[in-house]
Nucleic acid binder design. Structure first.
Lengths: 195, 195
DNA sequence: AAATTATCTTAAGGTAGTTTAAGTTATTCT
DNA sequence: AGAATAACTTAAACTACCTTAAGATAATTT
């Protein structure tokens, strides 16, 4: 099937599958078309799906006691997304996941995820590399949060995710950077004056 | 060898090795005794070792342009530690790693790490799970840094790493929390007054 | 044991980021 | 298209956290 070329290419970056393995893998995915601004995972639900984003864009975030949002990550086409801790440990989700625009995702259930490793051991390697990348990316974010001021973090964000910057609201960017929308507005004004 | 029981138990939590596999794995480790306050990795060096900490405690940190330290992680007995990004990509290290106390570590070189996966494919699974845990831990830290005030982060740190709290200086704790030692001192004073 | 050096504390003054509130501009819904 | 809702901006007052500097305490070196 044509539409699965993208995800197969994603996997082929790290491991090689036989024709049968590819077919098996695709057979355990569930195809979902999701309109924009749809919540596909809410806090408290059991998170039993790992989503590959075929097209579109999504966002995961959490709420603190006061109702303040923090964006955990933005995810676009060809990325994987879930509440990883809760997916792996089958705990009620601590996060929300919603579409930013109309999206097509392929879901892999926790059950199929677990069995995939016995059916096709090569996937251990694939997900090892995926987790490595996620870990090192997350660690870099920690360091940037600790060492940089909001203004510098904002410019690095624009630089790292230029496609995202156009799709998401500034409120969402602010909540990713850990600042208020008002403060971000000030940063942007400063930039405009310079141009 | 008696001394390798701890690391084998660590690995056995996630995968099962045959006797020969255990022996092969141990044979590629290099044993190191390191006195306290020794830098085992400096910024700019190629980081080609992944360290398992048999005993003792270590810390990894980075320096910004102004020379300000940020502690990336504290690591104690039975933990794995390296500059993961630079280890995996064979880049010059962006971080420093130093012993906090006299330590014994077993080093796995990048070369042996790479070959380990073909020699004993089960290690793909082991390191997948290791990376998963590192990733989800790091993501939790990001969220806490974004949503919590320094005081609350300090108490969670004490709670999560009670053994560490006694071993490291407050300057180091402050640099892990992303605050100045002076500000941490103020937080501690507040706590003392309450008791 | 003394001297040196690093850590920890205290306090005053400064800056980065927040809060609240009001007004403006987009989006979404009917 | 008009009404409703959410996003974005502006500004003033506030708070969390930083900077600098000095003195006290602890650890390390000689």
């Amino acid at each position: 099937m044509e539409i699965y070329n993208l995800i197969l290419k994603n996997i082929n970056k790290h491991i090689t599958l036989t024709r049968e393995e590819e077919e098996h893998f695709i057979s355990i995915l569930t195809y979902k078309e999701i309109p924009k601004r749809t919540t596909i995972l809410a806090e408290g639900q059991i998170c039993n799906q790992l989503s590959y984003i075929h097209s579109g864009a999504l966002r995961s975030y959490c709420l603190d006691e006061g109702g303040k949002e923090s964006t955990i990550m933005f995810a676009m086409a060809d990325w994987w997304l879930t509440d990883m801790y809760c997916f792996l440990n089958e705990k009620p989700s601590m996060t929300f996941i919603e579409t930013i625009e109309d999206s097509i995702v392929f879901n892999l259930s926790k059950n199929n995820f677990d069995h995939l490793f016995t059916a096709i051991p090569g996937f251990e390697r694939f997900f090892r590399i995926l987790m490595q990348n996620a870990y090192t990316r997350e660690q870099l974010r920690t360091i940037e949060n600790l060492t940089l001021k909001a203004e510098e973090r904002y410019y690095r964000f624009l630089n790292k995710y230029p496609q995202m910057a156009g799709k998401v609201t500034q409120k969402q960017i602010a909540s990713y950077l850990g600042i208020t929308p008002e403060f971000l507005s000030g940063i942007r004004k400063k930039q405009l004056r310079r141009e």
